[in-house]
Nucleic acid binder design. Sequence first.
DNA 1: GCCAACGTTGGC
DNA 2: GCCAACGTTGGC
Length: 135
Amino acid sequence: MNYWLVKSEPHKYPIQRLMEDGNTIWDGVRNYQARNNLQAMKEGDLCLYYHSNEGREIVGLARVLKEAYPDPTTTEDAWVVVDLGFEEIFPRAVALGELKAHPLLSKMELIRQSRLSVLPVRPEEFDQVILLSHP
DNA sequence: GCCAACGTTGGC
DNA sequence: GCCAACGTTGGC
């Protein structure tokens, strides 16, 4: 099992919408590194769901339903999408500032590579975020 | 709204 | 292949 973090701007596609929809196609990724991360996702992998810009916090969890396939929103064959399913909205969101202040979580790729929209998460980081989000 | 970080583009 | 110019992302 691998762990990931996906970013979305809440005004564009908040986790509340994913909950309503049940699942969604994760399209629009136009960065090669993020694309490579999408391609490495396996069915069943878990994705922390981060609200960027407004919010700046990890708000919940999604699961990979379908592994990478060509992005139907473009004719360029470089880009792929995955399908994500809703898992949960955390009882307590974990703020970016909290991650930065945490000895373990301050090393997360989210902080090291702040501009990437699809990022790997280490198992121990994932476990710690789950702990913090379920007081 | 500003700016740092970083990716992309195109001239040479 | 180098690098300046420019665009985008996202934190603050």
